[in-house]
Nucleic acid binder design. Sequence first.
DNA 1: TTGCTGACCGACG
DNA 2: CCGTCGGCCAGCA
Length: 131
Amino acid sequence: MQKNKTRQVNSFPPHSEGAGGELSFYEKVYEVARLIPPGRVTSYGAIAAYLGSVQSSRMVGWAMNNAHIQERYVPAHRVVNRNGLLTGKHHFGTSNAMQEYLEAEGIRVIDDQICDFEKHFWNPMIELDMD
DNA sequence: TTGCTGACCGACG
DNA sequence: CCGTCGGCCAGCA
């Protein structure tokens, strides 16, 4: 787990950040989502918490709604709810698309539920380390 | 401009 | 145990 304590976590991929302008909430969501390593999954709440607003978890899901229109690829399939349930699967092309992606990364999914969810869980707070 | 909605989460009863 | 409600931010009628 928390092996590297790089504090440069705050240094998100510099590009969208403008003069005196901080990244929008949903833009941050995309950044964090892209940082999710293959074979790993996280929850909306975890991302929201990392952004500093766990209560804004709804916004995270909403942001994912626009994830597909983003020019940059966003692994939305690696983001599930707190229960490890593929709540947003319906927003992919097909109903099983999200599951297909996860299984392709070695994650077993049964009944829209990720097996050993906590084992595949990727916590941005720890992996990215906030210090 | 006001108000509703949304791929959620946590608290209450 | 299960249903309900409030809350956060941003987009759209």
